[in-house]
Amino acid sequence: MEAGTPDLIKLEDLEAASGRLSGRKHVLSILVENRPGVLARVAGLFSRRGFNIDTLAVGPTDDDSISRITLTLDGAVHPIDQVTKQLHKLVNVIKIRDMEPGETIAREMALFKVSAPVESRAEIMQFAEIFRARIVDVSRRSMTIELTGTLDKIEAFERMIRPHGLIEMVRTGEIAIARSRPDA
């Protein structure tokens, strides 16, 4: 449907462009002004509009006056264009990027504290090695393992380690950056 065509637009050809559910996970990378209360505005917007945040990570950027909020949410439940349009209405929100899955590097870090009596230590260390995780603390009964990777990798490691007795797990939530173009 080209605006320049001389024909009239047939009404039956028109399709609603937005308001649809994408059905997949979305990673939104949001640049916000680094001011007090901005995170509260973003979080408040999500709860007020009934949008569910799956993960959330906040940190500085290369510019002191700007912070980045990376959040993931389920596009099967929420129309993402409505979420981003509502976010854009916040005056402190500068830019929103809905990261393209194929062109994005996304990582999360997790710390696992695992029950580790002497007899099972070898096996746990072996798992850690397979997943390229690092053991960052050891005590008589437990080990703490640091793992960085994609969401799938972290969840896979969790499944492996859980039968050994997972005492505590801490995850950062995903952060993401766009891949450079090959020629850039």
């Binding site: 399709e15 609603a16 462009a17 308001g19 129309p79 409505q82 209405k89």
Partner: peptide
């Protein structure tokens, strides 16, 4: 307000 468009009713020509 772009957020009003297709908020309640899917719109064909925003």
């Amino acid at each position: 307000d772009p957020a009003e468009i297709s908020k309640n009713v899917p719109v064909h020509i925003p």
